[in-house]
């Protein structure tokens, strides 16, 4: 199957992913409540990523993104997940702007009839979101100064690469 160049959409799939980039808080409980149930879904796996305080050093993280590309890139990954696993729902929500320690940065949810597809698809989505979605984190420190940009981890690339071998 060939993906649509603009949307990443795969022909022949009935379920559409939901991708949102927002500046406000992510209500994790509301996200979960609106994804589960419905009768057909047997399992919903979600991942919530939070801002750490790094041992009390950080006052905030500032998330920058590339508008347009960020949405499209995450949607493209989600369409790949829908093609690879028999999902009944697929959602990714990513925040941008200033995020305080303890607050959510990202939410990913994948629902399926059975748990394995949901677990694997959620993990796949996060691994590729980390390496392909154009977001950058910068640290703001407790002493009021602006810290450095968070460094990319090679282990994130390895995590994404493993899906090519599975």
């Amino acid at each position: 199957m060939t993906a649509d160049a603009n949307t990443g959409r795969q022909p022949g799939l009935q379920i559409e992913p939901e991708v949102r980039i927002e500046t406000g808080r992510i209500d994790i409980a509301a996200e979960i409540a609106s994804m589960g149930g419905g009768g057909a879904i047997g399992g919903l796996v979600t991942f919530s990523g939070y801002c750490r305080d790094e041992g009390g050093r950080l006052s905030a993280l500032e998330l920058e993104h590339y508008p347009g590309m960020a949405e499209r890139e995450i949607a493209g990954i989600a369409w790949q997940a829908l093609e690879r696993w028999p999902l009944l729902a697929c959602r990714a929500v990513h925040r941008t702007g200033r995020i305080l320690p303890g607050e959510e940065i990202v939410f990913v949810g994948c629902a399926a009839e059975h748990r394995h597809a949901a677990f694997e698809a959620a993990s796949f989505l996060m691994d590729f979101l980390k390496t392909r979605a154009p977001f950058w984190k910068r640290e703001h420190l407790k002493d009021g100064s602006t810290g450095g940009w968070v460094e990319h981890k090679d282990t994130d690339d390895l995590a994404a690469d493993k899906w090519h071998r599975l």
Binding site: V106, R132, P134
Partner: peptide, 10 residues
Amino acid sequence: IAIFPPMTGG
């Protein structure tokens, strides 16, 4: 053409 460092989202 966009030019940027390796990404650190998620």
